[in-house]
Nucleic acid binder design. Structure first.
Length: 739
RNA sequence: GCGCGAUUAGCUCAGUUGGUAGAGCAACUCGUUUACACCGAGAAGGUCGGGGGUUCGAGCCCCUCAUCGCGCACCA
């Protein structure tokens, strides 16, 4: 059967007669926003959109790594932040959202190394300079992709303030921060056992360790026949570096040996073993005695420091043995382990071999098993009292910022994780043996060293070859992006920032480090609210990852299919802070339909209010007045929820009201009134008021379709009557208030 | 080992200070009424993981157990 044609006697725009097409709309709308300049708060002030003395609202975008393209996780972060920013801008605040990218030192370097590997090139073949050129080229390409993607996602970022963690300004910030910390003796260089990644050939911080449970063999044996105590270990190969055996001070079995030294030969290596007492030894585990290898275990290193023991390195940076003659030297640790285990059996020294589960630390980036090694590295002291900060340590500064409620973490339960992490925090190792990143601003000459922003004068000064942990520069992000160390107007206006929105997986890596840097360097918090989102998962709950093959869910594909507005709604509704989000294509499709529903409702309203006389006072009949009251109370509720970061609730209420109250009840009711000529003016007024209000309130959630509709409401943007001045864009329209 | 979270309609999840259980999707029945079939109307569907406690009243607070997931941790 033929469907009756919409007669369009009121000459509605052609595009409004067809179903809504995000693909034909979104790019055009984004360009209009960019051209307007309203992503930049300065422009809003110039044009009188925002008052110069208005309250500020600022967010720094967690800078995506320049390691490739944006994924759904990035899309989620862009959506949540864009909603906040659009809402705050409509409230009339000086609203700034700063974009940027992160050089992501190790991650980017290893990515490029892998690409070069495919070409059969090693980074050592290229040399430092040529290699860095390749990395920078790669980083630039990634950057361009990322920027384009962010724009596709509708992010209302102020591109005029874009920053990069490795650009010139940020380099000055990094060096200034380094120098100040060095001068305050918070940064120091020390030889100690660190986490060595044999694959990445660099030291990594404690936070970059990932523990993996593995099967291991626990060997129980004596070093030699007349040694009085048996020890247990999973790593016999390190025992050639042993200098002591530690027992619990109260252990009756071993007390009599404490303080004695025994010498002998273990697998061809001469050892001198002193029996020491340490509270940390668990009498119940193994034999209750522990072989101490100061060079290859952090715990043992500390025992050695306390007891003044010698440190004997036996493993090198490549995970190979450096002692033991022909039998062991040059062998990989795993091989040496078997050789020693066999030797123990052959010698009749092996007493027990037990299969156990063991947590081994691996490197987050390379997956390699960490080899603890003693090395000279740079550290940040987290316990030293700082005179300029009321003698508080960095640890205390981090703690106080949150415990004082100056910084609020959403959801609140992450407070506990944060405090727990701080309590267990040890000095932060900030040097890395990689090429890509901020080179440590320290120069050496004949045993002399110089720390500064610029290289010292004179030829012979040699800069430290190491680079800084990428989180050092990231820690400065809230203020380095605003111009620090210069005293800029931006810094005065927009810092502390209002909200930091990111995934809970980088609470320690990044959020804690930003709090550290900001409270120390500026004496103020970096942000007031931390909003932590969960991880985006596939519809079946699986983690999206390349190895599972479902990381192929490209946000741009979804946008091409259903539109950005639909993706946004699917990412916001049903999503609460801290909880993972299952992204289901059905939901996205559903919200795509909602966009069309809004579109069609607009067609109906515009067609019916074409002859509405705006000079006449708005007079509503009883039921329409009730509807208006309901609308007002909806807006009040939604506003409260927006202020409390409850975007899911707010979005869902707007969705539901639009569809099931405005469309299903009010529009349907108006048809009867208009066709019967009963309370026609009231019916038209309520159509108009509802549509106007809902389009505005929906804008932060669905910016494209609402802006597009807004542009088709000629001279209707003031309730009082037709506007005569040039039409404003919806992004700078005032957030609706209940009348 | 310590800590955290989840467990609510078939599925995915909301539920803000304790006050008569909600949404979306799916499924069911009916309906093409000129904004929209990317639609409408209607009905159906839950002893809120188990057990105990506090309370006039508990999805929500307390205790306990179970299952799943996550974070942290120097049992060698």
């Amino acid at each position: 059967m033929e469907k009756p044609q919409f007669d369009n006697k009121n000459n509605l725009p052609d595009k409004l007669l067809k179903p809504y097409s995000p693909a034909d709309t979104e790019d055009r709308i984004y360009s209009a926003w960019e051209t307007s300049g309203y992503f930049n708060p300065d422009r809003c002030i110039e044009d009188g959109v925002t008052k110069a003395d208005a309250e500020h609202f600022s967010i720094v975008l967690p800078p995506p790594n320049v390691t490739g393209t944006l994924h759904t996780g990035h899309a989620l972060m862009l959506v949540i932040q864009d909603i906040m920013v659009r809402y705050q801008r409509m409230l009339g605040k000086k609203t700034l959202w700063i974009p940027g990218t992160d050089h992501a030192a190790i991650a980017t370097q290893s990515k490029v190394e892998k690409l070069l590997e495919k070409e059969g090139i090693r980074k050592s073949d290229l040399g430092r300079e040529a290699f860095l050129k390749r990395v920078e080229q790669f980083a630039q390409e990634s950057h361009d992709t990322i920027v384009n993607q962010a724009k596709k996602m509708g992010a209302s970022l102020d591109w005029s303030r874009e920053a990069y963690t490795l650009d010139e300004k940020r380099t000055v910030a990094v060096r200034t921060a380094f120098k100040q910390m060095y001068d305050d003796e918070l940064i120091y260089r020390k030889y100690r056992v660190i986490n060595w990644d044999p694959k990445g050939q660099t030291v990594i911080s404690d936070d970059e360790l990932v523990y993996e449970e593995r099967d291991a063999m626990l060997y129980t044996f004596k070093y030699w026949k007349d040694f009085p105590i048996s020890i247990s270990t999973t790593r016999p190969e390190t025992k050639v570096g042993d200098v002591a055996v530690a027992v619990h001070p109260d252990d009756a079995r071993y007390q009599k040996f404490i303080g004695q030294t025994f010498t002998g030969t273990f697998c061809g290596v001469d050892l001198s073993i002193t029996i020491i007492a340490d509270q940390g030894v668990e009498p119940e585990f193994g034999t209750g005695a522990l072989g101490v290898t100061p060079a290859h275990s952090k715990v043992d290193w500390e025992m050695a420091q306390k007891n003044n023991l010698e440190v004997i390195p036996v493993i090198n940076e490549f995970g190979k043995m450096t002692v033991g003659g022909e039998k062991l030297e040059g062998k990989k640790t795993a091989e040496a382990r078997d050789i020693i285990a066999q030797w123990l059996r052959d010698e009749g020294l092996m007493e027990k071999e037990d299969k156990i589960k063991q947590n081994v630390s691996t490197a987050e980036r390379t997956g390699a098993i960490i080899e603890p090694l003693p090395k000279l590295q740079w550290f940040i002291d987290v316990n030293k009292p700082i005179a300029a900060r009321e003698n508080k340590s960095l640890k205390q500064l981090m703690q106080d910022a949150v415990s004082s409620k100056e910084i609020e973490i959403l959801p609140e339960r992450f407070d506990k994780n944060y405090f727990y992490w701080i309590n267990n925090l040890q000095d932060w190792c900030i040097s890395r043996q990689i090429w890509f990143g901020h080179r440590i601003p320290v120069w050496y000459k004949n045993g002399e060293s110089y720390v500064g922003i610029e290289a010292p004068a004179g030829e012979e000064w040699e800069q430290d070859p190491d680079t800084l942990d990428t989180w050092f520069s990231a820690g400065l992000w809230t203020f380095s992006t605003l111009g620090w160390p210069e005293k800029t107007k931006d810094l005065a206006t927009y810092h502390p920032t209002s909200v930091l929105e990111t995934g809970h997986d980088i609470l320690f890596f990044w959020i804690a480090r930003m709090i550290l840097m900001s409270t120390y360097l500026l004496g103020e918090i970096p942000f007031k609210t931390v909003y932590l989102h969960g991880m985006v998962r596939a519809a079946n709950g699986q983690k999206m990852s390349k190895s599972l093959g479902n990381a192929a869910v490209d946000p741009l594909d979804i946008i091409a299919k259903y539109g950005n507005d639909a993706l946004r709604m699917a990412m916001i509704i049903g999503n609460t802070p801290g909880n993972d989000l299952k992204l289901d294509e059905n939901d996205i499709r559903g919200y795509g339909k909602f966009g069309n529903k809004i579109w069609n409702a607009t067609r109906f309203v515009l067609d019916n209010i074409a002859d509405l006389d705006f000079d006449e006072a708005c007079q509503l009949d009883a039921e329409d007045q009730i509807s208006l009251d309901e609308l007002n109370s909806l807006i009040t509720t939604v506003t409260t929820e927006m202020n409390e970061f409850k975007f899911s609730l707010a979005g869902e209420k707007l969705y539901h009201h639009f569809w099931h109250t405005f469309a299903d009840v009010i529009i349907e009711r108006s048809k009867t009134k208009i066709s019967e000529g009963r309370n026609v003016s009231s019916a038209k007024w309520i159509l108009y008021l509802e549509l106007m209000t809902l389009i505005k309130a929906l804008h932060p959630f669905m910016p494209f379709v609402t802006e597009e509709i807004w542009s088709m409401l000629p001279a209707l943007n003031e309730v009082e009557g037709p506007a005569t001045d040039a039409k404003k864009l919806l992004i700078i329209e005032a957030w609706p208030t209940s009348a």
